[in-house]
Design a protein around this nucleic acid. Structure first.
Lengths: 219, 219
DNA sequence: ACCTGAACACCGTTCAAGT
DNA sequence: ACCTGAACACCGTTCAAGT
């Protein structure tokens, strides 16, 4: 559709737009070439293969994350990174399932990792503790966003849209029946913030106390 | 290879074995039929389509989870569910990326959800709090296992096996350099347990204190 | 160097035909 | 009912050929 000169950047931009609009399955070399108005094989002059194309798309999306400035107090910096990750992930939900299988190897993913480790270091942690804290943080943040954007947290029909569930099976599960309204309807922004508070609170627990924010532990 | 009579169970068992041995991409109707020694289209007499086949495979694997017995104290029950989830997921790592896009809808997934909500209810939580706690727990547990089994926590080459990283880029990132040994080598069992302690500790925080275990908060 | 069409070895699924 | 082969509309990628 665009008449830009063909190149890696134009290809990755069109691929990201295609994935956002129609999902990962719609991203095929043939369909992408058609969108760009070129022959399928023309793409291979700029991209080695489909795997690298997908990695490139993920790298472009990762580049949309804004990292905290150099002086940002450490706990605030970690909160910013977490919120930015979620913001960008929800802009590109169809890419989210790729994240867990793609260790940070590009400049942007490594930059996010560096910013996280740097903030943890400034909070007073030794490298070993920082690595552990990073994995705890990443597990919650990426887990929450993956389940949120993947629809895992919509286990019940809740009117239209959800998957069909055997009513007889659920009827015999009193916990689910009692909780149903709160499974169907919840405040994802609020619960993400609360989860971040729990994780960061657990990290700040044994810190020296001189930092920007005490362990929160909100209800 | 097996000479069992063809049926949904035999098909699902063969499909799970194929996914475990060669990955999700190797699971094709044609390959699976060849493994079973039947024509491709014979599968469609027992399985409506590939999507349902994959859902069925996930349901079979979910059935390998052992749920805590009825009388198990609530926090211990939650720990058991979390450990069982991880144990089974690591037995079938190639299925893990499907989880976030598959809300519990089958009898076994809903059974796990029910066991979780039941334990949270017995811990003293009202349904709204139980739903929140369930999402916090699921975010950490599924997130941790997804990143662990997906290789996300292996960002550095660390000898052989990892992805190639631009050495120049990493060299300019002092946090990563300092932390490198602890990114390459860590105790995943220990960190999973520690993460569970953080999450369950945050839930027990405002509980009435009459339960089986106090909030742990180990270092 | 960049672009292209034909071809190859695959997919999931429909269909008509068998038992 | 269960099973089958051919066919259709797709894939990613190799290759030889063009500019």
């Amino acid at each position: 559709l665009t008449r830009d000169p063909l190149g890696p950047e134009a290809i990755l931009r069109a691929a990201l737009a295609l994935v956002d609009a129609e999902g990962l399955d719609a991203l095929t070399m043939r369909r992408l070439a058609a969108d760009l108005g070129v022959a399928t094989m023309s793409l291979y002059s700029h991209v080695p293969n489909k795997d690298d194309l997908v990695r490139g798309v993920l790298e472009v999306a990762t580049g949309e994350m804004a990292l905290p400035g150099p002086g940002t107090p450490p706990w605030e910096a970690l909160r910013t990174i977490a919120r930015e990750f979620r913001r960008v992930a929800l802009l590109h939900p169809n890419l989210v399932p790729l994240i867990t299988r793609t260790p940070p190897a590009g400049a942007r993913g490594l930059g996010t990792l560096e910013a996280t480790l740097e903030a943890l270091g400034r909070s007073g942690m030794a490298p070993a503790a920082a690595a552990r804290a990073y994995r705890l943080l990443a597990s919650f943040v990426i887990g929450f966003v993956s389940l949120e954007s993947g629809g895992f947290f919509r286990p019940l029909p809740a009117g239209a849209g959800g998957p069909t569930v055997d009513a007889g099976v659920v009827g015999a599960m009193p916990g689910i029946v009692a909780t149903a309204p709160y499974l169907a309807d919840w405040d994802s922004d609020d619960e993400f913030e609360a989860g971040i508070d729990v994780v960061i609170g657990s990290l700040a627990w044994r810190s020296d106390g001189s930092h920007d924010r005490p362990p929160p532990h909100r209800p």
